[in-house]
Each structure stands twice: as C-alpha cells, then as structure tokens.
Amino acid sequence: MILKGFKQNSTKKYISKLLDARKDFVANNKISSLAVLVNIDEYDDFESFIQFAKLINIAPNNLKIIAFTSNKKKDVDALNFCYNPKDFAWNGKVKHAELQEFIKTPFDALISYYQQDVLPLKVITAASKAKFKIGVLQTDNRLNDLIINTNFKQFDLFKTELIKYLNTFNKISNE
C-alpha cells in the first residue's frame, strides 16, 4: 500500500513536470491525423470515433485509437491497442514499446475521451507529442488545449460541439 502511494506521487510529479515543460503552441494546420485515447472502462464505442474521423475527412490510416483498462487481466479487442497499469513503471515511465511509439508520434490532434482521474491516462495525454489536444472536462486544465464540457455519455453532443470549434479554429477542411 505504501509503495503504491509512492508510485502515484512519483507519477503525479512526472505529469506536472511534463505539463510545466509543455509549450502552449498550437499549429495552424488542418487536422489530417487523429489519435484517440479512451478509457474503455467508461466508454467502449470505438465505432463512434471511426465515424467522427470520417466526418472530418481523416483517412482510416491516419486514425489511431488506443484504449486503457484498469483491469490487468481484461483482454479487450480494441481497434488498435489496449494497455493497462502494468505498462507503466515508477515515475510514470512507459514500459510498452507500442505505447511509447504512440506518445512520440506528432498527431495533428489527440482526443482524450475519459472522465475518471486515472494517472496512466493523464501520463499519455501529457506526454503525447500531439499538436492539438482535445478533451472532456478534467481536473487538470493544463492537459488539453481545448476542453469540451459536455455530458460524457452524450458523444453526439461532444462531436457536434467539437466540430463547431474545429470549424471556428479552421482546423478541418470542409471538402
């Protein structure tokens, strides 16, 4: 129990360090690649993200969805990849190679679709090299560039609001 507390505290420090070092620069380019980070324990409709990507003209090969589950034994057939707490070492360091590759990829946008305060999800959001980070209301406003405050279970409302803001910011092409 004490070790778990030390691990959580060191992970929180790592997240703060990542967020403090982050530059508040948002590129003016259109979104052509999209990453989605979802907590499958809260929301498991991957098809809604695929449809959203089609709606904003993202090619299927430019969409990457990864899921997180807090259940270490749960084998989830996610679209691309599912990870769990065992994929993280002390200080929030990522142990899994595919997850490290996801973090290093400079996606045009990252949608962090989770509500629960789960440290591994926050680590991935904070460490991601995505150029524009989008999320639902969370405890730490520094995680995302754009926060859509909608009812978490109403994905259609989230999608509508997000498209409205992306059009306002001239981030999507209407071709």
Rank of each mutant, 00 (worst) to 15 (best):
K73N: 13
K73I: 00
D75E: 13
D75S: 14
V76F: 15
V76D: 03
A78W: 10
L79I: 12
L79V: 08
N80T: 04
Y83Q: 02
N84L: 09
D87Q: 04
F88W: 05
F88T: 03
A89D: 15
A89P: 01
W90V: 06
W90I: 06
N91I: 01
N91Q: 12
G92E: 04
G92Y: 08
V94F: 00
V94K: 05
A97R: 10
L99R: 05
L99I: 03
Q100V: 11
I103R: 05
A109Y: 08
L110C: 03
Y113H: 06
Y114L: 07
Y114I: 05
Q116W: 05
Q116R: 10
D117A: 07
D117M: 04
V118M: 02
P120Y: 02
P120T: 00
V123F: 07
I124Q: 09
A126H: 09
A130V: 01
A130R: 09
K131S: 11
F132L: 06
F132I: 02
V136M: 12
Q138N: 15
T139M: 06
D140W: 02
N141E: 14
L143D: 01
L143N: 04
L143M: 10
I148K: 09
I148D: 09
T150C: 07
F152R: 04
F152H: 07
F152Q: 05
L157D: 10
L157T: 12
F158N: 05
T160R: 12
L162N: 01
I163M: 09
I163D: 08
Y165K: 10
N167E: 15
N167K: 15
T168F: 14
N170D: 14
K171M: 08
K171L: 08
I172A: 13
I172K: 05
I172V: 15
